[in-house]
Amino acid sequence: MAADHFSLFSVLLWSIWQHRNNKLWRNEVESVNVVCDRGINLLTGWNQAQEMKQKQSRIQPTIAGTRWSKPSIGRYKCNIDASFSTILNKVGIGVCVRDDQGSFVLAKTEWFSPIMNVDIGEALGLLHAMKWIQDLQLEHVDFELDSQIVVTKFHSKNRDESELGDIIKDCRTMFNTHFRNSRVEYIRRQANEVAHVLAREATSLASFHIFIDVPLCIRDIIMNEME
């Protein structure tokens, strides 16, 4: 099966699964056209997001904010990113924690299936990162991700009844309940390279991983960003 056909098949399966959930939990009945359009719109959005990331990765960081920076003294920085593989039908999540010296503390990779909307995948990455950091009982944490939509919605006071809105609400609840003197911030793609590489790596792994030593795939990036 050609890659583009497999991608279309994957998103249609996801849309059928979404249709099943809407019928089961919301008693909503959708037409075949609605189910197909949702899958096609997801694939179109995903392709556009990948094209944008590729363009951004080719642009040299020539303006402020395009390089990762250490947190202030006494704080931790938690970088988060999501990667989307239509071939594997997976969403990979990469999370990396560093201290105020820029030194590696811990990293984690995990993945979800089937593939989903880009913003939902990014928001789930933030939620799962918060749950992990809370389990580690860390405070004074700067959560950074390169999804401006997710960060904007996290700080917004507007009511959002969508699936994305529900996940953001869970993020806010987790944040307000467990984190003191912490923040959620948007950064440019170039300043989130470690999490991006981990997220891509996540989709190729059979299971979730917690790294207590610097993974080989991000070792050079960590060293360069400590300079």
Rank of each mutant, 00 (worst) to 15 (best):
H155F: 15
L8T: 03
V105N: 07
N21Q: 12
V194P: 02
S207T: 13
G125H: 07
V105K: 04
E144S: 07
S207Q: 15
V95Q: 01
W14M: 04
W25A: 00
K108L: 15
L13M: 12
A199E: 11
R180F: 01
D160P: 08
R75E: 02
D142P: 08
A2Y: 09
I73L: 12
R75M: 05
Q148K: 15
F112I: 05
A191F: 07
H155C: 15
P114D: 03
V184Y: 03
S147Q: 04
F84A: 04
M174D: 05
A49D: 10
G121R: 07
T109Y: 04
R188Q: 13
Q50K: 10
A82S: 15
T66E: 02
G39N: 07
C217P: 03
D146Y: 07
V32F: 10
G121Q: 11
N176L: 11
W111Y: 11
P114G: 01
L88H: 09
F84M: 08
D142E: 15
T203M: 14
I149D: 14
V151R: 12
S69V: 14
K77Q: 10
S57R: 13
A2T: 04
K153S: 08
Q137V: 06
Q137G: 05
L13R: 14
N27W: 10
Q54Y: 02
F6N: 09
F112V: 01
R189A: 07
S113G: 04
S85D: 14
H19T: 08
V151N: 12
W111V: 03
K108H: 05
S69P: 00
A129M: 11
N181A: 13
E161Q: 09
K153R: 15
I212Q: 14
G94F: 03
N47W: 06
I218Y: 03
I80P: 01
F154N: 07
H5S: 08
W132S: 06
I40T: 10
I63A: 08
D160G: 03
N47M: 04
S147F: 10
H209S: 09
A49Y: 12
Q48Y: 03
E201F: 13
G102N: 06
I93W: 01
G94R: 01
P215D: 06
G165R: 09
L205F: 07
K157H: 14
K131D: 05
R58E: 00
N22E: 15
I133Y: 03
E227T: 09
N181Y: 04
L164T: 06
I59H: 05
V11P: 02
N176I: 08
K90Y: 12
L42N: 10
D160H: 05
H128Q: 13
S31T: 15
D142Q: 13
F84T: 03
Q56T: 07
S15Q: 04
D135H: 09
I187D: 07
C36L: 14
H178M: 00
